[in-house]
């Protein structure tokens, strides 16, 4: 299971080498998320329409290693956009991946861009 976790590494904007065309914008609910499959990775993508922003992170909950983060609820903690894991409500910053209500390891964060009504996720390969 450790090896599943090790596949997910934060990609910074300036490290992107591949922009993966995931799905059209309307496939993602407003203020909600969905999971994108890219090779053997599962990436949770969020359309935080209230903030007019998009975020992506690993779908894998670092707490119990289940593929569930895309099914969690969006929100903010003092302005920091966050996602709550549906299993035990562990929350993670969508800006840094940091666990906001505990000391779990941070989750990996990926850049997102929108072009021609399509959602692209940035990977570094």
């Amino acid at each position: 299971m450790e090896e599943v976790l090790s596949k997910y590494k934060t990609v910074k904007d300036n490290e992107v080498t591949v922009w993966f065309k995931a799905a059209s914008v309307d496939a993602f609910p407003n203020d909600g998320g969905a999971c994108v499959k890219y090779k053997d990775l599962q990436i949770a993508v969020f359309n935080f329409s209230r903030l007019n922003a998009w975020y992506a992170c690993q779908n894998l909950s670092p707490e119990k290693q289940e593929m569930v983060l895309s099914r969690g609820m969006l929100g903010d903690q003092k302005g920091i956009p966050k996602i709550a894991c549906p299993l035990h409500k562990k929350t993670f910053s969508l800006l840094t991946g940091e666990n906001l209500n505990g000391d779990l390891d941070p989750i990996a964060i990926y850049p997102v861009k929108i072009e021609d009504n399509f959602v692209y996720i940035g990977f570094s390969e």
Binding site: N30, V68, P86, L87
Partner: peptide
């Protein structure tokens, strides 16, 4: 559905492995 707890969102109870 995006404002629902996961169980309500999918009208089913999430279990240990998702």
């Amino acid at each position: 559905d995006v404002t629902q707890d996961t169980n309500d969102k999918f009208l089913a109870n999430i279990q240990r492995n998702g």
